[in-house]
Design a protein around this nucleic acid. Sequence first.
RNA 1: GUGAGUGUAGCCUAGUGGUUAAGGCGCCAGGUUGUGGCCCUGGAGAUCGAGGGUUCAAAUCCCUCCACUCACCCCA
Length: 416
Amino acid sequence: MLYQAPRGTSDILPDEQVYWYYIKQQVADSCQRYGYQRIDTPLFEDSRLFSRSVGEETDIVDKEMYTFKDKGGNQLTLRPEGTASVCRAYVEHGMYNLPQPVKLYYLAPIFRYERPQAGRFRQHYQFGYEAFGDDDSSLDAEVIDMAWQFFRALGLNSLLLKLNSIGCKECRPNYLAVLRDYYTKHTGELCPDCKARLARNPLRLLDCKRPSCQQIARLAPKSVNYLCPQCEAHFSQLKKHLGRLGLPFTVDNYLVRGLDYYTRTVFEIQPEVEGGQSTLGGGGRYDSLIEELGGSPTPAIGFAAGIERIILNLKRQGVVIPPLPKPKVCMAHIGDIAAEEAIRLAATLRRAGISVVATSSGKSLKAQLRQANTLQVSYTIIIGKQEVEAGTVVLRDMATSEQQIVPVDQLLEQLS
RNA sequence: GUGAGUGUAGCCUAGUGGUUAAGGCGCCAGGUUGUGGCCCUGGAGAUCGAGGGUUCAAAUCCCUCCACUCACCCCA
């Protein structure tokens, strides 16, 4: 094979498109229902936008970015996540002047240089949404509700909603200090990865999957016990809101997220069955990010879900997807004169809004009908010399095999 | 970046040292003179992932590379 799609990328072939169409439809419906407006941002941005927002010490920035220099010498990066670009757009276009909260959503490809495996690719698609300018816990609840209802509408069941609060820039440093103290006492028992985490990103010590480390994590100080009064109130209100909405959340004290910008609320939605790359979507609050990117202080919260993982779960759960519409008519013809007429007739029908596939010329009628059959059209129009001379067509109903002779000028009304 | 497994037509699979690499699905054609699905018959389609080595002889054994899959890391 001379060329193949680059590692970790793939073609979305026609047979797969039914899933994409279905999900895009649900995305649009869901966003419409909750008042989110679409935004599309560039595929690449100034590299610093990502390193500053996502965090210099995160894996995404440290080793997963597709970064390149363009001919003008600008350091650019293919977007490794969605939120930073939307925040940049919010600041750049002065959206703080709009009535708040501003609610935006996107569906876009994401690029990360990683080793591919089940549910993980170098190019994948994320659907995400962000709400700016409101720090009330009721907005957190609404954002989480929207995520949950989105998956339900897709037909996915047996999902888990995990929730945690990791504090704000006031109270988190205290917590991190306590956490570091605790782990420093257990350094000897930690796995090599966790030793590195202790220095770089202590929050992530909490979700190490090794049993020995989980045992240490179980007794570790929990972020929810070190929240400042404001964060504490925000979190308890949020839990009340979610209860009222009937969302089956569980507080997971070990839930932390890989991006540095999160504050207070973090949440994740996962399938019940544990397995490799299982998280379907996640999000949280990022109340300091807009300010860090040069905007005026603006609280915000967002969520993102991976489309490929949604498809994986739709398949695993055997969710039935409504089929894409098939062409209505197949245009079959016999002989040279009829072939010319077929082109004209097909064009006429299409201009009237009817979908028509033409069969390839020079094939037997049998072959043309076989083609019509595989295309699953509703009708096949058959014309030969006789029909052209009489100004009629043979209209065959493919489901019943019934045929009738229809004058050309009555064909449109027969078909509509 | 680390570890393990796998690469045979578009897809799924048989073949583990010995003639022209086998079967199923799909595709194409024929079985009607102008009629699809089922059935029957035939056909096209494979430098056996790539390169090198061992051997009289390699899809089969060895090495290197590449890709895919799975797991770790991390994340959607």
